[in-house]
């Protein structure tokens, strides 16, 4: 018998007023798995992350983490269980120094050594030189990385990243991909990666899920998905 996955989303439905943005998406992620979630603009990827992390209540469906139903839990309760996310539209503490906020996030996630943890993440994301800076004074790319840092600190168990590579240089993107791989392999972090850079998504994901207009389109290993004619037609084809 197959063991139940660590992080599952079952038949999720999300409405914006009368508009159905997510219509029956299911996902099952194992511990330490990197899952790519792709789909054209407006497919519902951000909405999906919002509903899973508690930013928006789903109309129907179930989210479980380690066997526990977390569908109706508060944002804070989900974070306490290790669910952590980044934002497509950068969300940082603009008036606060960089290190202070990453430290706060780490401390709040009960990291054992929050200061070292925060400094390590800043180093990893090439932000250590800006530790004293007021976050609002950073450039766009740096703010993107800070948003990411706030999600990465404190050893989360599930990371949901909404286009984390946008605004990063090619080298930074590659470093981040390596970092995510290490988190998954070494610390068994489960990663849901929404990303437009196909090379990176297909490069590091164990499996890839494709959605279109809020509905599932395909799922499989990167090779299977790449070879899927429906995906080629609906998505990759139009990009190529």
């Amino acid at each position: 018998m197959k063991q139940k996955a660590y992080f599952t989303v079952e038949d999720l439905v999300v409405d914006y007023g009368g508009v159905r943005a997510i219509d029956g998406i299911r996902l099952a992620l194992d511990k330490g798995e990197i899952r790519g979630l792709i789909g054209p603009n407006g497919a519902g990827k951000s909405t999906f992350i919002d509903a899973v992390t508690g930013r928006r209540l789903p109309t129907a469906g179930r989210v479980t983490l380690g066997g526990e139903d977390i569908t109706r839990l508060s944002i804070i309760a989900r974070r306490d269980r290790g669910l952590s996310r980044s934002f497509q539209r950068t969300s940082i503490f603009a008036d606060m120094p960089v290190l202070e906020q990453v430290f706060l996030a780490s401390h709040q996630a009960r990291a054992e050594h929050p200061e070292e943890d925060a400094l390590a993440i800043l180093k990893e994301l090439d932000l250590e030189a800006y530790a004293d800076w007021r976050a609002g004074d950073l450039g766009y790319g740096q703010q993107r990385r800070l948003d990411l840092a706030l999600a990465l600190v404190g050893s989360p168990s599930v990371l949901l990243l909404d286009e984390p590579m946008a605004g990063l240089t090619v080298t930074e993107s590659r470093d981040l991909a390596e970092h995510l791989k290490r988190l998954a392999r070494e610390r068994r972090v489960t990663v849901l990666l929404v990303e437009h850079d196909m090379e990176i998504v297909f490069g590091i994901s164990d499996r890839v899920t494709v959605i279109e207009l809020g509905k599932p389109l395909a799922e499989g290993t990167p090779d299977e998905v790449r070879a899927n004619p429906k995906v080629r037609e609906a998505y990759l084809g139009s990009a190529a």
Partner: peptide, 8 residues
């Protein structure tokens, strides 16, 4: 909002 998402 971000404060909530870092668990505050």
């Amino acid at each position: 909002e971000r404060a909530r998402f870092i668990g505050l």
